[in-house]
């Protein structure tokens, strides 16, 4: 049973990794990335690594999405508030 679980988790992880890469809009990608972090956490616990699963949960579900969203927010705000000097937008 453990083997079947590991195979399922591996397939799920590979699927989510591909999905993260293929989601082109960064804001939507952040949501998918958060799900990918959960998939990794399940895989790590199945590989008998609870410490690593906890680390991945802590980093992958809150910190990285928050940083990504804040970066998107900063970039977007900059684009709208200060129209490009070279008239590109």
């Amino acid at each position: 049973m453990a083997d079947a679980l590991i195979v399922a988790a591996l397939v799920l992880t590979a699927f989510m990794a591909t999905a993260v890469v293929l989601t082109r809009d960064p804001a939507r990608q952040a949501i998918v990335l958060s799900g990918y972090g959960l998939a990794l956490a399940i895989l790590f616990l199945l590989l008998q690594a609870p410490d690593v699963a906890m680390s991945q949960t802590a980093v992958g579900t809150v910190v990285v999405p928050l940083i990504v969203i804040l970066a998107i927010h900063a970039i977007r705000r900059h684009h709208t508030r200060e129209p490009d000097r070279r008239g590109r937008e």
Partner: peptide
């Protein structure tokens, strides 16, 4: 086409090392 997207993709590529090591 977007640097934020590129950075996230890099973090995905890095997660391959976690899977391989474990």
């Amino acid at each position: 086409r977007n640097l934020v997207h590129a950075v996230v993709c890099l973090s995905v590529a890095q997660s391959a090392t976690y899977v391989l090591l474990l």
